[in-house]
Design a protein around this nucleic acid. Structure first.
Lengths: 347, 347
DNA sequence: ATTATGACCGCAAACGTTTGCGGTAACATT
DNA sequence: AATGTTACCGCAAACGTTTGCGGTCATAAT
C-alpha cells in the first residue's frame, strides 16, 4: 500500500456556502416568503410576472427546498427503502434494479440498507425508516428474524411494508416470493422428461421453509412420475458440503449415469467443483439441473439448465403492490411468481 | 404466478399513531419542553429527579427524536452514503460490508445508492446527498462521468467525498483504489516464475484507465523478465468477446502449452467457458491467472490463481480517510492498496 | 356612488427540536 | 440585612418550509 499526500484542498472549509432559502429569494425580490413558495409551485394565486421573476432567481442561485424543513411540515417524503441481508446476490441485484427503475419513473427515489443478516441491525434500520417516515419499505428479512411485530408497527404508522424473497410465515402481511414448489416441480419434470434413472438431490438446511418447500415438491413430482427412479437426497449447509456430497455420489455411482439437482446457487457451485475435480463431462457423464437466479449457471460450458427465480419480475410485482398500498389498499396479498425453465445444455 | 388475497389488515390506516414528541412528555410531566430536551441529553442543569421522571416516561411511550426537526436545527446527521454503479459485484459487496462495520461502531449509519452507471442518476443522488447534508459520501463513479465539479461542489458545502475503485483522474480529491500496476505485476511475475513461454493476455476496453495501467505494467514486467516469451494481447469488451478470443487462441496454439492472463472477472468468466468448451484441463493443458475480487476463481477446480483486489481492506482505508476529513483534514490523499497473490492450482 | 368580484399577495401559525439567556428560590457569605 | 452563590428551570428565537385566512387594490356590476 502506498500513499500520495501533498495537495492542499483550498479553503472549502472556511467559506462553506450556506444553501439558498426561500427567505433569501424573498428578500432579493421584495416579496414575502409565502409568495415565493407559491410561485415555485405554480400556485394560481400568483401572477405570471412574479412567477417568472421568482423562477429565474431560483434557478440562478440554484435554490432547492430543504428536505428536512419540507418533511417537518408535510410529513411526506418520496423515498423507498429496500432492506436486504446481503448484497452478494444476483437475485437481489436484479430485484433492486427492477424496483428502482419503476420507482424513479414515479418520482420516488430508493436507497438500500443492508442488515448483514443481523436482527439487531435490522431493527435499527427499521426504526430509522419509521422515524424518517419513508414512503414504504421492501424487505427480505434475516434468517434469524423471529418477531415480526416491528414490521406491523411500521404499518401502524402508515408505512407499507412489502416482504420479498425471505418472508415471514404469518399470513397477515404483503408477501412477494418466488414459487419454490413450482421451480422444484419444473426441475423434477425436466428430469423425468429426460428419462434419467439415478438422481441425486442436494438441498439446503431443512429448517428453512424454502428448503422444505423445494424438497417436498421435488420428491413428490419425481415419485409421481416414475417409480423406478432411484433418488438419493442429501442436505448441505454450504458450498463445501455440497461438493463433498457430490464427490461421494460420484464414487457411489461408479461410472453409472446420474443427474444432480441443486436447490440453490451455492449448492450448484459446490457440485460443479466436484464435477471438475473428477473430470466428469457435464451432459455426457453427469446431468446437472438447478434452481438459480441465472448468474452462476452461465459461467460454465455447457451452461447449466435451471429453473429461474427472477428478481426482475418480482421487483415489478412488488412495486406494483406497494403503489396499491400507498393508494390505500388494506388487503394483505401474497403473490407467488412462478418460474420458468432456462435450458442450458447440462441435462 | 398466483395471488392469494383475502385477509383484511385491520384498521391501521384509521388510527394511525402519531409519534411521541418532547411536547407531549412536557405536558404529561408539567415541565417545559426545554427541560425535557435537556433531561434526555443528561444536561447538568437538570436535577436527577427530573431526569429520571423524564427518562422513564420517554422509554415508556417510546420517544425518539424526530430526525427532521433535529436536522433542521443542528444541520448535523450521522450518516454516510455509498454510491456505486452496480451491486452485482463482489468487490463492492466486500467494500461496503467493511465500511459499514466500522461506521456503525462510530455511531454512523450508512445507506447505499445505486447509480446504474448513469451520470444523470448519479447527479440526482449527489444532489440528494447535498440537500440531506449527509456526513460524507463514498463513491465509485460511473464510467461516463466526465465532470467532477458536482463532487467538488459537495466539498464546498462541507461534505467530504471519498472516491474509491472507479476514481476521476484529477489529483485534487481523495482517492482510494486498487493497485492496478501492482496486481498486474504480481500476475506477470507468477507467469515468469513458472517459466511459461506462450502467454495470452486478455484485457478490457483500452479507454478505461484501469485497463491502461494493467496492460502497460503486465507487458513491461513480462518483457523485462524474459525475452523469449511470446505474448499475444487482445482486448475484449465483455465476457463473450473474451470467450471468442480464448477459443481462437486455443486453435492457434494447437496443443502447445500456454497461459492466459485475465484482467478481470468478466474476462475470466469468458475464458473459462472456452476452456470447458474445448475440454482443456486447467494446469495440465493451459495455465490460467487473473486479477479478481475472489468470487469467480473459487467456482472452479482447480481454483484459479489470482491477484486479489480486496474491497475489505480498501473499505477500512476509506473509512479511516473519511474520519480524518471530518476531523478537518484538508489534504487530498491518494491511497493505493497493493494486492497479494492468492494461489489456486490453475497455473 | 355603492357593492360585488377577482386577482394578487402577506401574516402568522405550525411542524419538533436545540440553546442562549434570564429568572426564581434557597442557601451560604459578609 | 444586604449580597453572592448555586441549583434548577422556562422563555423565546431559530432552523426552512407550507398553508389557511384575511387584506388590498382595481375593475365590473348595480
Amino acid at each position: 500500500m502506498f500513499v500520495v499526500e501533498n495537495l492542499y484542498l483550498g479553503n472549502q472549509v472556511r467559506n462553506m456556502r450556506l444553501s439558498p432559502t426561500l427567505k433569501k429569494i424573498a428578500e432579493q425580490l421584495n416579496v414575502s416568503i409565502s409568495t415565493v413558495s407559491r410561485a415555485l409551485k405554480d400556485h394560481p394565486d400568483i401572477s405570471a410576472e412574479t412567477k417568472q421573476k421568482v423562477n429565474e432567481l431560483a434557478t440562478l442561485i440554484e435554490y432547492d427546498p430543504n428536505p428536512y424543513a419540507v418533511n417537518l411540515r408535510t410529513h411526506n417524503n418520496k423515498e423507498f427503502a429496500i432492506v436486504v441481508p446481503s448484497l452478494s446476490n444476483f437475485f437481489y441485484h436484479s430485484f433492486i434494479s427492477s424496483i428502482e427503475e419503476d420507482a424513479r419513473q414515479q418520482g420516488y427515489s430508493v436507497f438500500i440498507y443492508r442488515s448483514s443478516n443481523d436482527p439487531q441491525i435490522e431493527l435499527g434500520i427499521l426504526k430509522s425508516c419509521r422515524l424518517k417516515r419513508v414512503s414504504g419499505v421492501f424487505i427480505s428479512i434475516t434468517t434469524e428474524t423471529k418477531d415480526i411485530s416491528p414490521f406491523t408497527k411500521l404499518d401502524g404508522y402508515g408505512i407499507p411494508v412489502i416482504f420479498f424473497d425471505k418472508v415471514p410465515g404469518s399470513e397477515l402481511c404483503n408477501k412477494i416470493c418466488v414459487g419454490d414448489e413450482h421451480a422444484a416441480a419444473l426441475a423434477a419434470a425436466e428430469i423425468l422428461k429426460k428419462g434419467i434413472k439415478n438422481v441425486l438431490g442436494i438441498f439446503g438446511d431443512l429448517n428453512m421453509s424454502i428448503t422444505q418447500a423445494r424438497f417436498q415438491k421435488f420428491k413428490t413430482i419425481l415419485a409421481e412420475g416414475a417409480e423406478k427412479i432411484k433418488l438419493k437426497t442429501v442436505h448441505a449447509l454450504n458450498s463445501n458440503e455440497a461438493e463433498q456430497a457430490a464427490l461421494h455420489a460420484i464414487e457411489d455411482y461408479k461410472g453409472e449415469y446420474f443427474a444432480v439437482f441443486c436447490m440453490s446457487d451455492e449448492i450448484l457451485a459446490g457440485v460443479m467443483k466436484a464435477v471438475q475435480r473428477k473430470n466428469l463431462r457435464v451432459l455426457q457423464d453427469v446431468g446437472i439441473i438447478s434452481i438459480s437466479d441465472g448468474m452462476i449457471p452461465k459461467l460454465f460450458y455447457p451452461e447449466i439448465t435451471y429453473a429461474e427465480t427472477s428478481g426482475f419480475k418480482l421487483g415489478k410485482l412488488a412495486l406494483n403492490r406497494m403503489m396499491r398500498c400507498i393508494a390505500g389498499s388494506s388487503f394483505a396479498q401474497t403473490i407467488v411468481d412462478e418460474s420458468r425453465l432456462i435450458a442450458g445444455g447440462s441435462i
